[in-house]
Each structure stands twice: as structure tokens, then as C-alpha cells.
Amino acid sequence: MSTVENHEAIASQSALRISEASAGDYFALLKPRVMSLVVFTAFSGLFLAPGHINPLIAVIAILCIAVGAGASGALNMWYDADIDAVMERTATRPIPAGKVIPGEALGFGLVLSAFAVTILGLAVNWLAAGLLAFTIFFYAVVYTMWLKRSTPQNIVIGGAAGAFPPMIGWACVTGGVSIDSILLFAIIFLWTPAHFWALALFKMKDYGDAGVPMLPNVAGVPTTKTQIVLYAVLTAAVGIAPVFTGLASAYYGAVALCLGAALVWYSIATYRMAEDDTRMIAAKKMFGYSILYLFLIFSALMADHLVAMFIAGGHA
């Protein structure tokens, strides 16, 4: 059955009943775990940006970015309801579980998108709002509707959607884009493939059943493991780059070097993993550490910036 036919079947079945969704079901549509990462990296960009922003405006900005991220999640779940239903890790999501009607999820996502972009533009600035609108479009349309089902490079290109939040946060303060905000974007953009391909290694059956052309299913496990090492090295290198643009100090550089070395080590352990290892323990550890890496690298940037502000204040 084609994607269009799958969506039509789901829609026709849903049209015959009334939604029994709870507030918790709608909250689940927002992909709260993904949203929390978006909020964290967006706040990092806002915090690291030069200049001043009214605290109330900053709260509004972060709220709008969070709502925009949630809207993207709802639109993604609406369109992917057919493949979510056949994947073990997504089968309990609100739409395939029959708790939310697809049309309601679509409307929910569109309304939240319009709200988030409009309020961000009116309360903060229209460059930040434009970047948020583009991020929602990129994730919901370019990645979800096109790349995800058509190319094994879906995560590489689609990763841009998850990399925009710190740039949006930066734009909220400065009204512009700089080499430093692009660097924050690049860290997440290059981190995404190794992170998701590690997941794809131990979820190959899920993606195969759903017909999603993830790299391990298309190019094979050896190629995927090589690509994980490559992107881990690139991520580690770019993670140190803020030292050379003046965004961070050498102390941050030392922390970033250690964090990046650990990321590369986990990627090499994954590379050395036996192809017939059904437990995929090394890949699971790589996936878990990659999440920790992103949290720690942005935390280190903010801690370094906070110390620099304290020292500057002491000398003022």
C-alpha cells in the first residue's frame, strides 16, 4: 500500500469516530523529549549571544521556540502515522494508538506553528520568527514528507532542522546571524548523523518494516559504522572551534577536547563491533553518549561564558 493510500485509510477510519484524546495525548504529540533538547540549545544560543535582551522577552522567545518545536513534532506524527504504526518504538504514539485523530493532529500542529511564529515576530524580531518558520517547514515538509522516505541521507540533510534552535536564540538577542551562531548550528548539524545512525543500527528491523531507507538498511552495517566514525570526528573538531572564534576560552577548549575524544572513542568501539552482534551494545552506548555529549558541550559553552562575564564584571 502506498503512502497516500495509507494516509487515506487512516483518515477514513478516523472520520467514523469521535476523538477520545486527553491533554496528555496532545502533549505527547509535541514530542516533549525532543522539545526539551530544542529549548536547551535555543536557550544556549540566546545566552551566548552578545548584547542584552529583556528577561520577559527572553521567556517569550523560548516559549515560542518550544511551541514551534512541538508544532513540528505534531505535524511529523500526523504525516508519519502510517509508518509509526508498524515500528515498535513508535506504535504507542497517540495517532497509531488510536487516541488522536490525524486531522486533529494536523490542525493542532498548524495552529501552534502560526501562533509561535507570529508571537515571536511581534514580541521579539522577524528574523528570529522567519528562522523558526523555516525550521518548522524544513522539518515537517522537507525532512518528514520528502527526505525521510526517499534517501538514506535523510538524517544528514534533515538534521538542519534540529540545528537551527541555537541560531534562532542568537537572532532573538542580536537580530542577526554571525559566524558564532553558525558554529553552534554546525555542532548540532554534524552531531546528528552519528547520533541517529547509532540508533538506526539497533533499530534496523523497525526501519526495514516501515520501509524507511535508513543508511544501515540501504548501504549496510559496515558503511554505516564508517560514517559514524567520520561524523564523530567532524563533530569533535567543530566542538573545539568556538575557541578560535573567541566565543569560548581555552578552558572550554580543553573540556571540548575531552568530550570529543570520548565521542570518537565510542564511535570507534561501534566500528569494531561485530556485524553479527545482535545486542549492538556498542551502538547503544554510542547513542547514549552522543546525547550526553551534546548536553555537556553546550553546558560547557554556557559555563565558560558565565565565568567570563563574572571576571569581566569583577574588573569593571
Rank of each mutant, 00 (worst) to 15 (best):
P222F: 04
A269H: 14
H195C: 04
A282R: 11
A248Q: 04
V218K: 04
G208T: 10
P216Q: 00
Y271I: 10
A241L: 12
A250S: 09
E275Q: 12
A261F: 14
L234Q: 12
S178Q: 10
G239V: 09
A262I: 15
A261C: 12
T235Q: 06
I179K: 07
L247H: 02
A163P: 08
W170S: 01
L199E: 04
A186T: 15
G176P: 14
T226N: 11
K225F: 10
I281R: 15
G253Y: 05
A282N: 11
Q227Y: 14
W197E: 03
F202Q: 03
G211H: 09
A262F: 14
A194D: 07
A282M: 11
D277A: 07
T270F: 01
G253T: 07
L183G: 13
A236Q: 08
D209W: 11
W191K: 05
A256K: 08
W191V: 07
F196T: 08
A236R: 11
L184C: 11
A219Y: 08
P216L: 00
A236D: 07
Y207A: 02
K203R: 14
G239H: 07
S181V: 15
A248V: 10
V243A: 00
A237M: 14
P165W: 02
I268E: 00
T223Y: 10
M280N: 13
S178T: 15
V264E: 01
L215N: 02
T235G: 07
D276V: 12
L199T: 11
P216W: 03
V177I: 15
T192W: 06
Y252P: 07
L183C: 14
V212L: 05
I187H: 02
